[in-house]
Design a binder for these strands. Structure first.
Lengths: 196, 196
DNA sequence: GTTCCCATGTAACCCGTTACATGATTTT
DNA sequence: AAAATCATGTAACGGGTTACATGGGAAC
């Protein structure tokens, strides 16, 4: 836990991806989308601007590559200073602790102003998403199972899976509690529309 | 799941807090810190600027209050349009799905470039934090247990607790796996410093 | 023939953080 | 005497998102 405002986590993550193999911005964005997106999303346009910045800083070196039947591209590879910057980041203790936000909870915190039906709808919707997401991550974990070279990718996927499971569990618990208390009438506010 | 760019979740959350009782920016910031901070952090200066914005928009009304032995303050209360905006937000289906970032995972994804010891240190540190956080939330859940009027606050706290538990579990699992595989030597890269 | 993939970026905007600034009063 | 609480903001900066812009080739 630090503020990590030396190179910035996003920059380092990009260096990390380039370190796997040299690639173009397009390829990097695609790789990011299918590997780190679950815990560190990067938008397409940021990939390009960040690569340009890293090249200016001398951390990556881009080479223009002409292609037949395809647009030209620029392949970036890690330079020695870039590798050093990456390892400095990785070997420093601590990590940037980002605070995450949850829009569902932001709403649900004020659920006393909703009708019982609205609460349930919201939770059902959330549960459905969480479950879809859970399945996605389960598939990734399964795919990576046993592949030892992907150990840390599997680890991060497993993290996501655990959290997705927690989401589903929570939603189910809440729905159960809501349905219980509806019978007892202690959480509902009875009226459907505005009651004042 | 929408983009929710009509009033903005932060604005609505502030309306929601003001709806509980009229209060000053200072009080609101304090309340936010001890209630919604876990899933929707708002910085102090944003509270003030947002309240000013909401007043300009007519959603809250501020009244200057003079105090003896204390700085004057401005107490905000919800207006009718403000209440309407709040309920419109709450009653609309869907929620803003923010993508959250995790700095630990961002690093750990590239853990193959670390030494075994660095990996372990990182996870131990993370585990410690996660556990502290877990205890905090457990305390909140316990405190709110049984208080029916705080049902939804309890619900959000329980969400946080489940996730904190997932964090601890994950860290423990990883540490175990790391220690196991160290014996087998299939995850480590042997050398301590750069090995090329 | 339409849609998708490859490929790269710009521009505008917005949300939010940190640090700074001020200052009395109360508690330790 | 020092620190925390009450109370409100400004200013600068920075990171990131979305939409826009372009355009050829491949696949369906």
């Amino acid at each position: 836990m630090d503020g990590n405002r030396e190179p910035g986590t996003t920059s380092c993550v990009i260096l990390g991806l380039v370190s796997k193999r040299p690639m173009s911005g397009y390829e990097l964005a695609a790789l990011a989308a299918r590997s780190i997106d679950h815990f560190w999303p990067i938008s397409k346009s940021q990939v390009y601007s960040e690569l340009a910045r890293l090249e200016r800083a001398g951390y990556v070196k881009g080479t223009h590559i002409e292609q037949d039947h395809r647009p030209d591209k620029r392949r970036y590879e890690l330079t020695a200073p870039g590798e050093q910057a990456l390892d400095t980041w990785l070997q420093a203790p601590g990590y940037s602790s980002e605070r995450n936000r949850n829009g569902l909870l932001a709403k649900f915190f004020f659920a006393e102003r909703m009708t019982q039906q609205q609460r349930i709808n919201l939770l059902v919707e959330y549960r459905a998403h969480a479950d879809t997401y859970r399945l996605e991550l389960q598939a990734i974990v399964d795919k990576l199972e046993g592949r030892n070279h992907a150990a840390y990718g599997r680890a991060t996927a497993r993290y996501g899976l655990l959290h997705a499971q927690a989401n589903v569990t929570w939603a189910d618990d809440m729905l159960k509690a809501l349905r219980n208390s509806a019978e007892l009438g202690d959480l509902d506010r009875k009226a459907a529309p505005a009651d004042r």
